[in-house]
Computed example of a mutant assay.
Amino acid sequence: MQHILVGVAVGCAAFFIGRRLWRAMRHPANLSCGCGCSGCVPDPDATKYKPSLPMYKP
């Protein structure tokens, strides 16, 4: 039973990797960095906000 579940998991992973590669080969102009964002061009406004950690006071 364990071998079947592992086989199904590996098969699903191979399917999704293959699908992503297939789409990349069919439409190379639509490739992105894969980060889930709208593109890889950095936003110039993103550098304005620089969060800092609060000072630790014992």
Rank of each mutant, 00 (worst) to 15 (best):
D43Q: 08
M55I: 12
K50S: 13
C37L: 11
A13I: 08
P51G: 07
G18S: 09
C37A: 11
S32K: 07
V6K: 12
D45T: 13
Q2C: 04
V8D: 02
P54Q: 12
A29W: 12
P42K: 06
M1Q: 09
C35L: 02
Y49W: 15
M1T: 07
C40S: 13
R26D: 08
L5I: 09
W22S: 10
L53S: 11
P44M: 10
D43S: 14
R19D: 07
V6D: 12
C40G: 08
D45M: 14
L21P: 00
C35F: 00
G39W: 02
P54H: 06
V10N: 01
G11V: 02
R26M: 09
A24S: 11
C40V: 03
C35T: 04
P51D: 09
S32M: 04
C40W: 03
S38I: 10
T47W: 13
G18E: 03
K48M: 09
S38T: 12
L53N: 10
C37R: 13
G7N: 12
K57M: 11
C40T: 06
G11M: 05
L21K: 06
C12S: 11
W22F: 12
D43F: 05
R19I: 01
M25A: 15
N30Q: 15
P42N: 07
P42M: 03
T47P: 00
F15N: 02
R20Y: 03
A29T: 10
A13Q: 03
P28A: 08
L53K: 15
L21G: 01
P58M: 07
P28W: 07
P54D: 09
V8T: 10
L31P: 00
V8M: 11
W22N: 05
S32F: 00
A9N: 04
P51W: 13
G18T: 06
G34E: 04
C35I: 00
P42S: 05
R26E: 09
V8Q: 08
A29F: 06
L21V: 06
G34I: 02
F16Q: 07
N30I: 01
L5S: 12
M1P: 02
I4S: 03
M25P: 00
F16T: 13
P28F: 04
V41S: 05
P28Y: 06
G11N: 02
G36V: 03
G18F: 12
C33Y: 03
P42Q: 03
R26N: 08
M25K: 14
V6M: 09
A29Y: 07
K48E: 10
F16R: 06
H3F: 13
C35W: 03
H27P: 00
G11H: 01
K50M: 13
P54S: 14
I4P: 00
G39Y: 02
P58A: 12
V10P: 00
K57D: 07
R23T: 07
A46W: 01
L5C: 05
H27N: 15
A14W: 01
Y56K: 14
L31Y: 00
A9P: 00
V6A: 11
L5N: 09
V10S: 08
L5T: 08
C40N: 10
G11S: 12
L53R: 15
P44D: 05
T47A: 15
S52D: 04
L21N: 03
C33E: 10
V8L: 15
H3A: 14
V10T: 08
V10R: 04
G7L: 09
C37P: 00
S38V: 12
H3C: 03
